[in-house]
């Protein structure tokens, strides 16, 4: 994978009332990395992703994307990102094509042809003219991925990207992620509960617990760090001290 750091998160902290949701988090993602972001429910994964995408304001710390400071150079930084945060949401009264057209309109360099391309990649070309209100969760997830690809980003952030997808859809998405990382050098930050999937496709992973990063590194190294080679699932349960509810 490349050496150039694409996403750099330093000392990221967020509290809600007296609860510390994210506590001095540091993350570095290099070009071409597929970075698995693991943690139990409520561990702070989505809050971290929301801060990285500027949806919520951190109490402390900073985020740099492609060298651009998210707070002071928001437009330059976010232009490098495609993201699905939590559930993909679209205007139900518009078609899949119209929804993407609205998004594309916010990127001067994205053409109508690109909209067709991403619909093709997401396997939605045949349903492009259908209203999103008629879509299943899996189809909305695919449309979300199409939207995340629209601006040909350098970093794609996917929060539970295989939610609602059928086994074939999950397989296709995993293959697509690996292909985009290999062929186009796109980096991925993937939050997932599916440890087996993360083990299969990610070269790096981090585990967050109660807002704190408790493990980070190359997946192979993490799995080999014990007395014997473990699966990611075994590793995860070991380091979360049996609190590894997924």
């Amino acid at each position: 994978m490349g050496n150039q750091v694409l996403l750099e998160v330093q000392g990221l902290t967020k509290t809600f009332g007296s609860r510390v949701a994210v506590d001095r988090l540091n993350i570095r993602i290099a070009e071409g990395d597929i970075y698995g972001f693991l943690g139990t429910n409520g561990s702070g994964k989505t809050t971290t992703i929301r801060m990285i995408t500027g949806l919520i304001h951190p109490d402390a710390g900073e985020v740099r994307i492609g060298g651009f400071h998210l707070k002071s150079q928001f437009k330059s930084a976010i232009s490098l990102v495609g993201a699905i945060v939590e559930n993909p949401a679209f205007y139900g009264y518009l078609s899949a094509y119209d929804n993407l057209k609205l998004m594309a309109n916010l990127y001067p360099s994205v053409t109508r042809k690109r909209v067709d391309e991403v619909l093709e990649i997401a396997g939605l070309s045949e349903r492009a003219k259908d209203k999103v209100a008629s879509f299943s969760l899996g189809m909305k997830q695919r449309l979300g991925i199409a939207g995340a690809l629209l601006n040909q980003p350098k970093l794609i952030i996917l929060d539970e990207p295989t939610n609602g997808l059928d086994p074939q859809g999950m397989k296709e998405i995993k293959e697509l992620i690996v292909q985009l990382a290999a062929e186009q050098g796109i980096s991925f930050l993937i939050s997932s509960h599916l440890l087996h999937d993360v083990e299969q496709i990610c070269n790096k992973a981090a585990v967050i617990r109660k807002g704190k990063l408790i493990a980070e590194g190359e997946v192979k190294q993490l799995l080999a760090s014990g007395k014997e080679t473990r699966t990611l699932e075994q590793f995860f349960f070991d380091i979360t001290e049996g609190d590894g509810r997924l």
């Binding site: 949806l55 928001f74 232009s79 945060v85 993909p88 949401a89 679209f90 205007y91 916010l106």
Partner: peptide, 14 residues
């Protein structure tokens, strides 16, 4: 509430 706000705010839009 529906989250469609993200369609704009995850783009280069202040």
């Amino acid at each position: 509430n529906s989250g469609t706000l993200k369609l704009s705010l995850l783009c280069p839009v202040r």
